[in-house]
Write a protein that binds this DNA or RNA. Structure first.
Length: 281
DNA sequence: ACCTAAACCTGGGCGC
DNA sequence: TGCGCCCAGGTTTAGG
């Protein structure tokens, strides 16, 4: 599911392929997804693609921007004359685009297209003035992020005052940006911390280990092109392989690689948590 | 203020 | 074969 490494991998692909293009037309097949005035996009060039947490900002040099959130099953797929024959992952919904999951099509110059696919239709695309994008509550309320401004010191101060389970805290975007269920589970395993413990009860040294683990699991995922356990594909419609390297996520019933105890699955705040009762203490 | 749970959606997998 | 149910989980909203 798209978390920081997945969205960052999409961002890098768009940065490489989309920048320099102009948007010539937008076909909105599902109005639920697309909000704003598409005409505002037509007289400028894409200059930059930014990521804030799990959200994307596509900047255009006419003062407007596209803000995008793919939620769980959204895909942004770029196709042009060069990539037209590159096989698409079956997760895109078929061999060709557009298909039945294509909700928005951006027709670009030089015969290229950007397709927004979304099976479950949770995602959104908003046209906004660039100066207004960061005022969206989603961006405005984003907490410090791994690889940016998430420091050990910040985490130690944050954890001290919070009595919710550490796993639930890691996934709260307003407190720490970019971590979702996969990396919360794997980072807690990597640092040997029980996901049920209250954040305020963690020792400074444990928070230091957790900070390190967050970065190491996300770095590893980026290296493998992120995780395609569900619907994720990159900006060229290709799958990642981090799902082959999950530490505990989705591995309930299997043996822990560190202590050979069985990996358990519980619910926390309505979501699945996977952990090893043997070595996460 | 703090926390939980349902809602938003669709399709795949399971039991019967 | 098919029906009903559960599950996936990022964010928003409603409610305790």
């Amino acid at each position: 599911m798209p978390e920081l490494p997945e969205v960052e991998t999409i961002r890098r692909g768009l940065e490489e392929h989309l920048v320099g293009h102009t948007i010539q037309e937008v076909y909105v097949k599902d109005p639920k997804i697309f909000q704003g005035d598409k005409e505002s996009l037509f007289d400028g060039t894409v200059t930059k693609v930014k990521r804030v947490g799990k959200g994307l900002i596509i900047e255009i040099d006419n003062g407007f921007a596209l803000a995008v959130h793919v939620k769980m099953t959204g895909q942004l797929i770029y196709r042009d004359l060069k990539t037209a024959n590159l096989p698409l992952s079956p997760k895109t919904g078929g061999e060709h685009l557009p298909n039945k999951y294509t909700r928005v099509i951006f027709a670009l110059d030089r015969g290229a297209n950007l397709f927004y696919n979304d099976l479950r239709r949770f995602g959104w695309i908003k046209v906004l003035r660039l100066s207004e994008v960061l005022n969206l509550p989603f961006f405005k309320e984003m907490g410090p992020e791994p690889f940016k401004n998430l420091t050990v010191g910040y985490m130690q101060k944050l954890f001290a005052g919070i009595n919710i389970p550490v796993k639930v805290l890691l996934m709260d975007q307003s407190r720490i940006g970019g971590i979702g269920n996969i990396y919360a589970n794997d980072a807690l395993y990597e640092s040997g911390i029980d996901p049920r413990r209250k954040a305020s009860e963690l020792k400074h040294q444990e928070i230091e280990k957790l900070h390190k683990a967050i970065h190491s699991v996300m770095e590893q995922s980026l290296k493998f092109g992120a995780s395609s356990a569900e619907n994720y594909v990159d900006a060229l419609g290709q799958e990642g392989r981090y799902q082959e390297h999950f530490k505990v996520y989705s591995k309930d019933g299997q043996k822990c690689g560190r202590c050979a105890a069985e990996i358990k699955r519980i619910k926390q705040s309505g979501r699945s948590t996977f952990f090893c009762e043997g070595c996460q203490i």
